[in-house]
Amino acid sequence: MLQRPSQAPGVFAAVGLPPVVWLFALFLAPLAVIWTYSFGENRTLVDIAITGSWGNYARALKPLYLAILLKSMGFAALTTVLCFVLGLPVALAITFASRRAKLLLLVAIMLPFWTNLLIRTYALMAILRTEGLINAGLGALWGIVPGLPPFEPLPLINNNFAVVVGLVYVHLPFMVLPLYAALDRLDRSLIEASLDLGAGHLATLWRVVVPLALPGIVSGIIITFIPALGAYLTPDLLGGTNSQMIANVIERQFRSANDWPFGAALSFLLMYLTFAALMVQAIISRRSAEREGAR
């Protein structure tokens, strides 16, 4: 039974105050500051006046920046789709694996997840570079066949392709784990019933597994989409001048362009997009919870 604060006021204060004060002073306050800045203007290099204008947001939605925003969303969406396509069979395999194999596969998926993001991105750079492993390997193969023109290394890095590959590489575990959690909860007899009634494996997947695992699929999609949308390091290291994402633009405003109010507005646009994605997830999971609750 939960207690009311009045039943143990001393404990309530001792337990509640430190985390709440910390959250307000060191988490909400910094966010509030840039939120206020997003309605401000640069007077001089260091002096920012809060004018309450929407100018920064208006500027952020001009074609130049809107294009980057849309491109970021496009990259994130493509990443999410690719992660789903790559990850669903993996999640299915884990779900129906024996206990031993299940543990092994889960650890195998988790391990890169625990490895430093920077290092994983660097590992990809080494593979994709013009003089990287893939091009070196292809070049060697090319050399075997006589009479071919000299090998032209494939442009695998500093472009959009590299950014998407990097985003998929980094975010695949984000997709597989929630998918696995959703599939594992699924009542196996429903799948068997579908097969028993004559549906093939793909029909069963499409008509029974996917609709029933939908909340888990949605959360996998959102959990992958959100960090992919705000990715900084991947486009920074793997992308070219043309594949910058919203986070790179934000970074530039703060570290080189010194336009804090505009950077703040961009940051909050990114936050609002994130919240919108979370809201979609909350609505869908509540709907399915209602359906389950009514049962």
Binding site: I34, P227, G230, Y232, E251, G263, A264
Partner: peptide, 10 residues
Amino acid sequence: VVPEICLGVA
């Protein structure tokens, strides 16, 4: 859930 970049600039 807040994007790292937002927290970073904050």
